[in-house]
Write a protein that binds this DNA or RNA. Structure first.
Length: 796
RNA sequence: GCCUAAGUGGCGGAAUAGGUAGACGCACAGGACUUAAAAUCCUGCGAGAUUCAACCCUCGUGUCGGUUCAAGUCCGACCUUAGGCACCA
């Protein structure tokens, strides 16, 4: 009788007692670093979605180990952040304690699933020994001029009482609570991410990310090449710049628009327009980003009374203000070409502004309009195509010193301050005399105070501001009284470099030694959710590139392959959630069916990269398969060679399982093992070696039961053995069934020797009774014969 | 609107390089074993026409075209769904 509970516990204990998965940095073995995104240890425990990706990478890790690699497969906790803080506030406990409890649950759940993590390297981002180095790295960024404080309008969530990054407030909605975000002026720590835009783009060449992942990064960076054009303001000696990707349409620019926040507005607005302009500016400042974008079909704006001079034809064109021009992109000002830009067109129509087409085919209104016509109404670029016109215009602008080629990026600097308690304190001190001063590195970690009060304030200050004992300190430079920065770092900080720490997690001299990082080289295989492939990956790459430029890491790109998994949905095909009542708890499944069954099912359930609904029926099918594996043991006879008639299928299966696990086709790896087991089942007896190879191939996915059965054969543990090899010549059947088509339609099949001569194939095809029927009274035009594949007879 | 991914039986999904569509599993139906149940084993299982039955035949991978001896796979146009971005000049 096989009691999976006892068996699974036994082997989990064996791995723990023997420290089977503990890896050393000090070995000649080739390194292989497999990383899964470390989870946020929420109160609801491990999700079956976690089980899917952890099992997949576990299978890869176990396979690679058997192939002789020194495999680093670590696990840790990304435990700072709002949910833990809010949970703690609600339940009147310290977030530290809540986190500790959740980590314990998560870890236990993971261990029950038999993941081969090296637990000796475990850490949490909330450990002072870890965040000491997050703070230390921030100080390096500060010292290298990559961190600065700026007063900027920020996204403020009145509900969560915190600043949100542009990313966290996408669409004007708070990512955490879903409420509307408003704009608020605040002094914030920033990281100069925009400076790295080009490097982050370039660096993608040194990665093996999936194309779609690279695209996500490229879109986020948002590079666009165009020109900066300088416009004189009529009657003054002032100028302002606009950014455009279509400087070739300059002859069609009939007005300019400044964003409501543009610094020149007050100076250029004429007396009679002042009132109107000020009113409009005020209106805009009250609008949240959401309102501004929501109303994007209905353009608003006011005239300043001022005029700009179009440099190419010296025409006076009016300067307007409108919030459809964003202050944060380009120069915060545009030239408007209403004939060829939808937004400018809408605006011009509404306010009766001039529209001059400068491209053949009329203006944007016309149905057959294309934006790539030849130039008209454009003096020296008439008749040119887009590319030529842009180039000619660029040299004209440079010659006349009123413009130049310019590259712009959507990506902005990273707002690095959060007004929360539960994050890494930013290690900076403000002194009235010396300004901002970094905390002495020797004083790190700068610990979070152990207090009971950490609720957010209404003023927008961090809860830390209320803890005067902590805030009041002395200036590291002059020694006078000073105050600590009370903002903390965003959740993204700790996860931007955790993969480096896993390479050398107990180092108390450095965040990780150069030797350790050189040995492991990089993350070979990084698995995570699609939702993190844009931002987290970008932040992590930025962080690493900054460290690289300070000679603190050996490579500019420390992550090689990035893959992502699909979600496990509820049985009703919807996202699992408590409110929908479709949540599956992995613990319940492990209790009832065992960890091996759950692991096997999650690998078999579907395409790894696609979302898949949960099905308890299918899970039961996987249990049956494991029972079949156990039953097969009764057929084993003590022989140390493959059964002659199983040799081909065994070689085939070794090849396929290996290939599939290395290529994320876990579902077909499982199905090929099922086919092998069915082949065994058809026989009265199988050899010990037949059985061993099946157990070994299944071991990465179902490690407990396979170890148990293998032990009962009297063998040493699979985990210490080597991955079976296959003989390529023996992966092809001796006899092959091939199809015979007549005019592309299947009319029969024949069984032939592998690599049979074309002539023989044709002859046999023509002898087939059903084929003959179709050939009756017909003329054969030609016969296409592809050995080992198909014969197609073309008739008239 | 833009970008990305995906549309194949009742369901999850297979199908190197264009070469027998539906592997493997689930569900379902019939049967064997059993006093019975569970477990297990055997058979069938895309749709349709025809037949005592089988073979055979027709249609079939979101839609419409195209390329090819041959298309789930390649090309063109479109439709639907999911996810992401969105006044980015």
């Amino acid at each position: 009788m096989y009691e999976f509970k006892k068996i699974e516990e036994k082997w989990q204990k064996y791995w723990e007692d023997n420290q089977t998965f503990k890896v050393s940095n000090d070995t000649d073995k080739k390194p292989y670093y497999i990383l899964v995104e470390f989870p946020y240890p929420s109160g609801s425990g491990l999700h079956v979605g976690h089980v899917r990706s952890y099992t997949a990478q576990d299978a890869l890790a176990r396979l690679k180990r058997m192939q002789g690699y020194n495999v680093l497969y670590p696990m840790g906790w990304d435990a700072f952040g709002a949910p833990a803080e809010q949970y703690a506030i609600k339940n009147h406990i310290h977030p530290k304690d809540a986190v500790q409890k959740n980590i314990k649950t998560f870890k236990k759940q993971m261990q029950r699933l038999g993941f081969s993590f090296d637990w000796s390297r475990e850490f949490s981002t909330t450990d002072p020994n870890y965040y000491k180095w997050t703070q230390w790295q921030f100080l390096q960024f500060y010292k290298h001029n990559m961190a600065y404080k700026a007063t900027i309008p920020v996204n403020w969530c009145p509900n969560c009482k915190t600043v949100l990054s542009n990313e966290d407030a996408a669409g004007g909605v708070c990512e955490r609570c879903g409420g509307y975000v408003v704009q608020k002026e605040k002094s914030q720590w920033m990281l100069k991410m925009s400076k790295y835009a080009e490097d982050l783009l370039e660096g993608l060449k040194d990665t093996n990310f999936h194309e779609k992942v690279k695209l996500g990064q490229i879109n986020w960076i948002g590079k666009s090449t165009g020109a900066e054009v300088e416009f004189k303001i009529d009657g003054t000696n002032k100028t302002f710049k606009v950014f455009t990707t279509r400087c070739d349409t300059l002859f069609g620019a009939t007005y300019c628009v400044l964003s409501p926040e543009h610094k020149y507005i007050d100076e250029i607005t004429t007396e009679e327009h002042k009132k109107e302009v000020n009113l409009y500016k005020e209106e805009c400042s009250k609008k949240s980003e959401l309102e501004r974008t929501e109303l994007n079909k209905n353009k608003t704006g006011v005239f300043t009374g001022a005029y700009a001079i179009n440099p190419v034809n010296n025409k006076k064109i009016p300067i307007w203000i409108s919030d459809y021009v964003l202050a944060t992109y380009g120069t915060g000002a545009i030239m408007a070409v209403p004939a060829h830009d939808t937004r400018d067109y809408e605006f011009a129509k509404k306010f009766n502004l001039e529209i001059i087409p400068v491209l053949e085919g009329g203006n944007i209104e016309k149905e057959a309009y294309t934006e790539d016509g030849l130039h008209i109404n454009s003096d020296f670029i008439n008749g040119l195509n887009k590319t030529d016109a842009i180039n000619k215009m660029l040299s004209w602008l440079e010659e006349h010193k009123c413009g130049k080629k310019q590259v712009n990026y959507k990506m902005r600097d990273w707002i690095f301050s959060r007004q929360r308690f539960w994050g890494e304190p930013i290690p900076m001190i403000y002194c009235d005399e010396c300004g901002w001063q970094p905390v002495d590195e020797a004083d790190l970690p700068l610990l979070l105070p152990d207090v009971a009060e950490y609720e957010p304030t209404d003023t927008g200050e961090s809860p830390l501001a209320k803890i005067t004992d902590w805030v009041n300190t002395t200036c590291p430079k002059c020694g006078k009284k000073a105050k600590r920065e009370t903002d903390t770092m965003p959740n993204w900080a700790g996860s931007s470099w955790y993969f480096l720490r896993f390479m050398d997690p107990h180092n108390d001299k450095e965040f990780a030694s150069m030797d350790a990082m050189k040995y492991w080289n990089r993350v070979d295989w990084y698995n995570g959710g699609m939702e993190h492939t844009a931002r987290h990956l970008l932040y992590a790459r930025f962080w690493v590139q900054m460290l690289y430029n300070m000679n603190l890491v050996p490579k500019k790109e420390m992550i090689w392959t990035r893959v992502s998994h699909g979600m496990v949905l509820g049985a009703n095909n919807e996202k699992m959630s408590k409110s929908k009542g479709n949540v599956i708890n992995p613990d319940d499944i492990v209790d009832e069916y065992g960890a091996d069954t759950l692991r096997l099912y999650e690998m078999f359930m579907g395409d790894y990269e696609q979302d898949v609904p949960w099905s308890t029926d299918s899970l039961k099918g996987c249990k049956r398969f494991i029972d079949k594996i156990i039953r097969l043991k009764e057929k084993v006879v003590n022989e140390n060679n493959y059964s002659k008639d199983l040799e081909i299928i065994i070689n085939k299966t070794i090849k396929k399982v290996e290939h599939d696990i290395l290529n994320m086709s876990y579902n077909t790896a499982v199905s090929s093992l099922m086919i092998l087991a069915n082949n065994y089942d058809d026989k009265d007896k199988i050899t010990k070696k037949d059985y061993e190879v099946l157990l070994t191939l299944l071991n990465p996915i179902a490690p407990h039961i396979t170890e148990q059965l293998n032990e009962e054969l009297g063998n040493k543990p699979i985990v210490n053995s080597t991955w079976p090899t296959y003989d390529e010549d023996k992966t092809i059947d001796e006899y092959i069934e091939i199809g015979i088509q007549v005019n592309g339609k299947l009319r029969g099949t024949i069984i032939v020797n592998k690599d049979e001569e074309k002539e023989v194939l044709q002859q046999k095809a023509l002898e087939n009774d059903n084929v003959k029927k179709h050939l009756l009274d017909k003329e054969i035009v030609k016969i296409i014969t592809i050995p080992n594949r198909i014969v197609n007879i073309v008739i008239k």
